[in-house]
């Protein structure tokens, strides 16, 4: 029963996220609305962590494999990528490194200043 209840709660919130996605005309996916709803329910104590703990840990643990199907889809856009492989690789890699450095260094600097 425990897992059925936990999974039902998680899917209900996912469904509520889908509903918001359908109602609000922004390109924000159901998953982000769902994350916000879940966080809101936890903060306002409408929902206890213990009510979803095991199932949420399980889903987060197996999350890596959920990205495989979409990533394998790369093979279908390969022809489009191949012709521009060098500029595409450079822009992807360089911007990744710059974003990483900017976000990390700024967060660290501001956090340190506060003491």
């Amino acid at each position: 029963m425990k897992y059925i209840r936990q999974f039902t709660i998680i899917l209900l919130i996912s469904f509520a996220g889908e509903l918001l996605h359908a109602l609000i005309p922004w390109p924000i996916p159901a998953s982000i609305y769902g994350l916000a709803i879940m966080l809101f329910c936890l903060i306002t104590k409408k929902l206890k962590v213990s009510a979803i703990k095991e199932t949420s840990s399980f889903l987060i643990e197996i999350m890596p494999v959920m990205f495989i199907p979409a990533a394998v889809g790369l093979m279908t856009s390969w022809n489009q990528i191949r012709q521009m492989i060098l500029p595409y690789t450079l822009i992807t890699l360089i911007s990744l490194i710059i974003v990483f450095a900017a976000a990390g260094r700024v967060t660290q600097a501001v956090a340190r200043k506060k003491g």
Partner: peptide, 21 residues
């Protein structure tokens, strides 16, 4: 394989739990 992708939304929703903690 789409059933794996299907789980992404509920899994992302669950990321709220470690965040809340």
């Amino acid at each position: 394989a789409k059933y794996l992708s299907w789980l992404l939304t509920p899994a992302t929703v669950c990321l709220a739990v470690p965040l809340y903690e």
